[in-house]
Design a binder for these strands. Structure first.
Lengths: 206, 206
DNA sequence: TCCTTATGTGTACAATGCTCACATTGATCC
DNA sequence: GGATCAATGTGAGCATTGTACACATAAGGA
């Protein structure tokens, strides 16, 4: 039988096995957790590895360097983001409501995941490391496509038409800017409910 | 006489004097330079001090820690930003043109100073260190006031009226979002001239 | 002139990102 | 089965960083 004297992978729940199984994913999750706890966009590679129960150097088998890990986190963020946008759109029945739903979801996502949102649109993602990462680029453009197709449906025009492109850009910029301003607390002095604010600002546009 | 054997402050142009004169300012400038060279939002406190020709610890006489330096840089950024917005407004004659001028200046500033812009609206400024810094808060709200007063003039209403507040918010969000999208290179695939894009997106709103 | 405060230096420490050499694992081929 | 080998992990070590503490020097008023 295969039950040798040495411990098998399933002998212990505390992951005593040499090979982790999916270190890459575990590191992304751990780093994300650290960011949430800190509130900022930065984290310690060593600390993340420590949490996973692995040496720092093990992470270098899955990521070329720390920036690469951050890019992976950003990509994961964009995937969740796209999903959130689609879920938001699904709440509406008319094309207009679906569009508004995405807009609300956009801002809500930013407010719910400030660190992740900042990382996704931060300098690392925009830098060389991010632009050369196919996974990130793909996940990023997928998010825009959700908005774009929503607008195309609303405007009843092909998604690639110039009118839709510019309109999508406007809508995107609006949601994006509003998200950031809320994150920065720069709207804290306004006596308005954030959710109401979203509707007021966004709905005036469409 | 005051000419002792030791070197006087003015004996040498290379700043041999013990007391630097304005280390605080010099450190801000050096750090800003480093950020520009790196392209990112981060820099090394030690490297900045090195450039100024001073020990790292000297900087702790002027800033409680590195975050404090970053906050000071952000504040300086907001001051330049306000000036840029005012300059942009000054190019127009009508209220509408002045408003558009600010909008263009907003986006142009972001594109011209990506690192600084990111720092200004980054997590450090939004965090505790930033919110508790009077200088930053003041400089930040001054920038918004430029937009607000411009809109108030255009709408011919008092700056504090609800209509102006919401409109300013929309305009701000639009410019802010557009700036970020451009910085992130997320609009690079569009076959549009950025400057034309600005006008197209902004002018449709007012 | 002395004393005080502001400003700077020197030494030191823990933490971090990263590199290189080595160890272990698990699948594949004979 | 056992040998082979790439994938995956460990360990020691290095330069750099942010920060703290004790001390040195400068500048200016009593």
């Amino acid at each position: 039988m295969s039950t040798s004297g040495k411990s098998k992978p399933s002998d212990n729940q505390k992951d005593p096995r040499y090979h982790h199984g999916n270190l890459r994913r575990a590191l992304v999750d751990a780093a994300l957790g650290l960011m949430v706890e800190t509130g900022g966009t930065s984290f310690s590679l060593r600390e993340a590895a420590r949490r996973v129960g692995v040496t720092v150097n093990a992470s270098y088998r899955h990521f070329r360097n720390k920036d690469a890990l951050m890019v992976a986190i950003a990509a994961e963020g964009f995937r969740r983001f796209s999903q959130a946008l689609m879920d938001g759109a699904a709440t509406g029945s008319s094309a207009r409501d679906r569009l508004l739903g995405s807009g609300r979801a956009y801002v809500r996502f930013a407010r719910a995941n400030p660190s992740l949102f900042r990382l996704m649109f931060g300098s690392v993602s925009a830098g060389d490391a991010g632009r050369e990462d196919e996974e990130l680029v793909l996940a990023g453009s997928a998010a825009l496509d959700v908005l774009k197709s929503g607008l195309a449906a609303f405007m009843n025009k092909p998604p690639e038409s110039p009118a839709v492109t510019v309109a999508a850009l406007r809508a995107w910029a609006l949601a994006h800017g509003l998200s950031y301003l809320l994150l920065d607390g720069q709207l804290a002095h306004l006596p308005l409910d954030p959710d109401a604010l979203i509707d007021q600002v966004i709905s005036a546009d469409v």
